[in-house]
Design a protein around this nucleic acid. Sequence first.
RNA 1: GCCACUUUAGCUCAGCUGGUAGAGCAACUGAUUUGUAAUCAGUAGGUCGUUGGUUCGAUUCCGACAAGUGGCUCCA
Length: 644
Amino acid sequence: MIKIHFPDGAEREYAEGVSAMDIAKSISEGLARKVLAASVNGVVWDASRPINSDVSLKLLTWDDTDGKSTFWHSSAHLMAEAVESMFPGVKFWVGPALDKGFYYDMDLGDKKLTEDDLLQLEKKMNELSKQQNVYVRKEISKNEAVSYFQEKGDQYKLDLLQNLADGEITFLHSGKFHGSLPWSTYSTYRFNKAIKLTSISGAYWKGDEKNKMLTRVYGVTFPSNKELEEYLVMLEEAKKRDHRKLGKELSIFTMDDDVGPGLPLWLPNGTIIIEELEKLAKETEQAAGYKRVVTPHIAKESMYLTSGHLPYYADSMYPPMELDGTKYYLKAMNCPHHHKIFAAEPKSYKDLPLRLAEYGTCYRYEQSGELFGLMRVRCLHMNDAHIYCTKEQFYQEFKAVNDMYLKYFKIFGIDKYVMRLSLHDPAKLGKKYVDEPELWKETEALVRDVLIRTNTPFVEVQDEAAFYGPKIDVQIWSAIGREFTLATNQVDFAQGRRFKLEYTNQENKPDTPLIIHRAPLGTHERFIGFLLEHYAGKFPLWLAPIQVKVLPISDKFLPYAQTISQELKNADIRAEVDDRNEKIGKKIRDTELLRVPYMLVVGEKEMNEGKVAIRRQGKGDTGTATIADFVSSAKSEIKERRAE
RNA sequence: GCCACUUUAGCUCAGCUGGUAGAGCAACUGAUUUGUAAUCAGUAGGUCGUUGGUUCGAUUCCGACAAGUGGCUCCA
């Protein structure tokens, strides 16, 4: 007999060789129907795998993250089995579970999958899951596995085997599909009731663009059709708040073939948002002791050789233009220009920290396939600043920048983000990162220290640093789930020396400052793209391009409506009159769809009383007020940048 | 840049297997003068992304290019 410990502290005895499924059945049939896998001493196990010693056990269901990922991992294998039966000779790479669903990478030779193939594959998967095949789990030696896949000529599985040792290799046999290495869990096949293969794409083998491109099929499955339906509805909802769709509906920006890919044109409505954001940034930076500068959009090649950008960054820059034998580049970043401003006049320790700020316009030649609405563009306006400070001042300065992030996030109600400490990869020193191993260690420790001392939750990620130093990135997700860096706070220990930036320290000796690059509001492009989705187009009053729309009940009240509109404009409120010859219901509907925060409905009653009927977007009629009262409450809502 | 797909009126989309195009909304005109999410009628609007080819004939079939979309790689 063996002892099984349960999460609630209970302990029960079972015969040796009992499976998690047997245990579930012994508790209740209902539970057994829900069990997808088991966590055995913290490791995810197939529910049918025999347990031969005392363990602590947690039965995993759809409600557990590990249960879901086990489910999706097995769906990936179910799909592989369907693919193999339809396209014999296919070779598989890996098929992991995702946050939502799964994919499988495969080499289909010359075969190209079509949308129709996906439907056929779904059908096949449904058939297979209904067959309720029994899968036999068998541990085999590395030699056996290698010779098996050598015979098959499957270089992908052989590659996977390289990193595994005897005792780690498991085969699962079912029908014709053989396949997989250790982590597979097949006991959940029978739960695959709602299957949707979502897309076909290419993916480089091992994620390296020098390697062959494999075919990747994405899919998602659910234990019931109801959940699949709900998921599809959710996807539709997400599409409605896609910034590309909202940007068009609300006349925020447009793209034009003649201007070029990734070069957005900001329409008047979008420009209002830009100006409001800049106003906020300038106020905030002014209060935090920043000084504003302005720099040209181009610079000579020599400056980017000095900065060290060219060897690391040339591929992401527009090709240079040559004038009188000198190459000029469009700037992809503002830092070198700012460094030149630092260098323009001699500096003493008394001048530090020096904080230079600019909403700089940069151009980056992003690969065509990477462009994405406003989120990834080739012309960007950066909320940039560079802080030159001593090592002693670093903690305080870096922390002040972090505090500024948090202040902004509060204003915008941004709470779904992850702070990411982005570190270098020692293997890429001299290639992707400046070759200063000691300085990397030192500055990475400095940054981590700030995060820890300020109790900021964060994750650490290798190989995401800037070439000149580690950074803290704020990661967010677009409506359709793509991840982006919204804001960034970076340390630079390299460029100061490259530009020979110096200040005279208290011992009257030259010293090189540390540099902080920071962009709490990221770029206008990405930030506004993000805000469109974050607010679903319903901007708070201070940001709304049209703040108030005056809606006369009929033409008879148009003069009164125009008087009100003028009073609002006099009070610096962005107001318009709907002077169309339409019924009030139509005017309200159209204004609601434009997400204008306030609608002032005026008819005979309001005109006689000198009042307005206030309607708040999304909330309906909220009563009447005098014009003066409305103006003063709207003005304070704007001034305080209230969320609502 | 790579893999796959898409491109028809300002917007959203029809247009079966090749015989030069249609709807709704928006726009414009007129009627209506309206009380909290779509009043009615009429008018105008398209070398069917661009460009080669196949064909008596191409929006429709094939190729190239461009832009976009879903991914990969990459990034604020």
